[in-house]
């Protein structure tokens, strides 16, 4: 098989002693596609990424590019890019020197290298700052340099290992947007490891949810969000309550789903709304994230959480009406 098929991972296993870090994983990444590997820490996602890069010896299985097996291709000949959580910039080179490194390894002539470095620094929003020492740069700037360095040699595949995790929240949200824009504009094929589902959903064409070395579900973000494969995927995404469709209907809600399916709920699934179909008693209320989170006892369903817009003053024991979000997350079968 030849042709532009991108990355192929077949039945890959990585072990450390007795621990099975990656357990018979198969995954494809098409050219131009960004796939996020999403999972809690220690689930094996970084090991999978490192195995793809050729940095981790594999126990079994194969990694291929466009159908060609990469087993005998050493790290430095794979033509991939890699970006770590903490940049790992070369401290003894300035920003431009870092970006230039891969171009030198590729044997590009100096004028071409210089042009490309300028191009990349501009792309990541650091134009004109090439002579700065990386030690004097902020965490966000360092990650921008790391991204420019990884992208400079036009890698066939960019591997990102929690690239934004070491940044504070505000910076991370801004860089998530920038990174998304840059990956799309350059048409980069990428495998993106993260434990943050907001980041994964914002960044990726497809998301692969991983736990205990196995892939639980690979699908588009919307699909994962609304049709999690099972309870563990749903729980990882933040769904905390699981209610049968029949019980919901009996409580008064209108759900468009098979009778034996299960609805996954999180606080944002239920909204305070006058005339809503569900009746509930308020147990507790606290202000958070620009709204109010309510602990409620829903008639026929038990204790759940709901959200209200703004800082709503609600006395405990108040009786309220709730409505269910229009497109609920559904799990096949009973939980």
């Amino acid at each position: 098989m030849t042709g532009p098929q991108g990355l192929g991972v077949r039945d890959l296993s990585v072990t450390f002693g007795q621990t099975q870090a990656v357990d018979h994983v198969s995954l494809d990444v098409a050219p131009g596609e960004v796939v996020a590997l999403l999972g809690p820490s220690g689930c094996g996602k970084s090991s999978l990424l490192r195995a793809v890069a050729g940095l981790e010896p594999t126990r079994a299985g194969a990694v291929s590019w466009d159908g060609d097996d990469l087993a005998d291709v050493p790290v430095h000949r794979r033509g991939f890019g890699l970006m770590f959580q903490d940049g790992q910039l070369f401290a003894h080179r300035d920003a431009a020197g870092n970006v230039e490194f891969g171009l030198r390894m590729a044997g590009l002539a100096k004028p071409e290298r210089r042009r490309r470095v300028g191009e990349l620094l501009e792309l990541v929003g650091l134009d004109g700052q090439g002579r700065r020492s990386v030690a004097t740069m902020s965490g966000g700037e360092q990650q921008r340099v790391a991204l420019a360095r990884a992208l400079a040699p036009r890698p066939r595949l960019l591997l990102l290992d929690e690239p934004l995790s070491s940044l504070d929240r505000a910076l991370r949200e801004r860089l998530t947007g920038d990174l998304h824009r840059i990956l799309r504009r350059t048409g980069t094929t990428a495998l993106y490891v993260t434990h943050d589902h907001d980041e994964a959903f914002a960044m990726a064409h497809r998301v692969a949810v991983m736990a205990a070395g196995r892939l639980l579900q690979v699908a588009e973000p919307r699909q994962i969000w609304q049709r999690p494969a099972d309870e563990s995927v749903a729980r990882f995404l933040g769904y905390r309550w699981f209610v049968g469709v029949r019980a919901l209907r009996a409580a008064g809600a209108d759900v468009d789903a098979a009778d034996d399916a299960t609805v996954a709920l999180r606080a944002d699934s239920l909204r305070l709304s006058a005339g809503g179909p569900l009746k509930a008693v308020v147990l507790d209320a606290s202000f958070s994230r620009g709204g109010t989170t309510l602990r409620v006892d829903v008639e026929g369903l038990g204790e759940l959480e709901a959200r209200a817009f703004g800082a709503t003053e609600l006395a405990p024991d108040a009786v309220v009406a709730l409505s269910l979000e229009p497109e609920v997350a559904l799990l096949p079968g009973a939980v």
Binding site: H76, H92, A150
Partner: peptide, 27 residues
Amino acid sequence: IDERQREVAGVLGAGPARVFAAVDLPV
């Protein structure tokens, strides 16, 4: 030296000798 420095250099296309020259030698 953080081992990942050598890994980054390797992924960027540096063979073992050049990884050594780029990461270990300056230190």
